[in-house]
Amino acid sequence: MKLNLEQIPRVRTITKEEFINTYYKPQKPVVIERLIEDWPAYAKWNLDYIKEIAGDKTVPLFDDRPISSKYKFNEPHTSMKMSEYVDLLKSKPTNYRIFLYHLLRESPKLQQDYWPPEIGLKLIKAMPYLFFGGEGSKVFMHYDIDLANILHFQFNGEKQVILFPPSETKYLYKIPHAVIAHQEIDFVNPDFEKWPALEYAKGFTTTLGHGETLYMPEGYWHQMTYITPGFSMSIRSVPKNIGNFMQGAYNLFLMRYLDNFVRKVVGQKWIEYKNEKAIARTNKRNGFSGV
């Protein structure tokens, strides 16, 4: 059995009014296929170009190991020169990813290749993040800590995306005091006997190609799998819902620091407690006993 997923709607182009009324206000995802064809980045950005422009930069890398007491959330597992990393991506599958990286700040020339699209969102122009991944690498299921609206631009290759709206959180085995689902879940090939609540979750999926833009509404869960080596960029807009804005502020300025403090004091037992709690709460809420 597979997850209950429908295809994310697609449009070739869109006006501000259409985007705001059809997707932003009702908080629905959409793929816009030709939004950035006028960017220099559309023609120029590939792995070879990144290597040419930023090959000397030392970049932080993450792999798919479960979160533990050894590493803080978003703490990299290793690092290497961007030139070495690009060579690795092109040579073989790898689990190493670049996550939430300000490459455009370190390589200002790249800033000339894009501009925030005029789509009706008040975008935070100073916060474009880049993400890189090798063939087969996966980003764990999570939602962004600030609950922002996100425009996600794909470059150099294909990526499978799975989304769930916030309404489906009750089925996703959310970890307490965190913004992730239980990391043992394989959302591409889920085991419904082990994770029975997942069968009731209703979400969306698509495959993003070079130059395509995904709009992810605020608080949407997302999991991504790199079909081929590639990279993407995200630009954010603050939540329109005041409740989400307040929750995002709490997550950013209190929750994550409290969680890191308890993890430091209690160690791996805190991680294990939260994982067990996620299973127990989700199954109890949905009428399942045990796992």
Rank of each mutant, 00 (worst) to 15 (best):
G209D: 08
N189C: 08
G211Y: 04
T205S: 07
N251K: 12
S167E: 15
T225L: 13
W195Q: 04
I271N: 03
N275I: 08
Y250H: 12
N251W: 10
A178Q: 09
M224R: 07
D259H: 12
K269G: 06
Y173L: 04
T206R: 00
H222Y: 10
R281I: 12
L208D: 01
E218D: 11
K277Q: 15
K240R: 15
Y200M: 07
M216D: 02
A197Y: 04
V266S: 06
A178W: 08
Q268F: 01
E199A: 13
N251T: 09
V238K: 14
A278I: 07
A201G: 02
F204E: 01
A181I: 04
I235D: 09
V188S: 11
K269P: 02
R256Q: 15
A280F: 11
G230M: 11
G203E: 00
Y220C: 03
E193A: 11
A197F: 01
Y257Q: 15
T207L: 03
T228A: 11
F187H: 03
Q223P: 00
F245V: 13
R263C: 09
M224C: 11
N251E: 10
H182C: 00
K202C: 09
M224E: 15
A280R: 14
P196K: 03
G211F: 05
A201P: 00
F253W: 13
M255T: 06
E168P: 04
M246V: 10
N260S: 15
I279E: 06
S167D: 12
I235A: 12
G203Y: 00
W221A: 03
G219N: 06
R256F: 01
A280Y: 09
N260K: 11
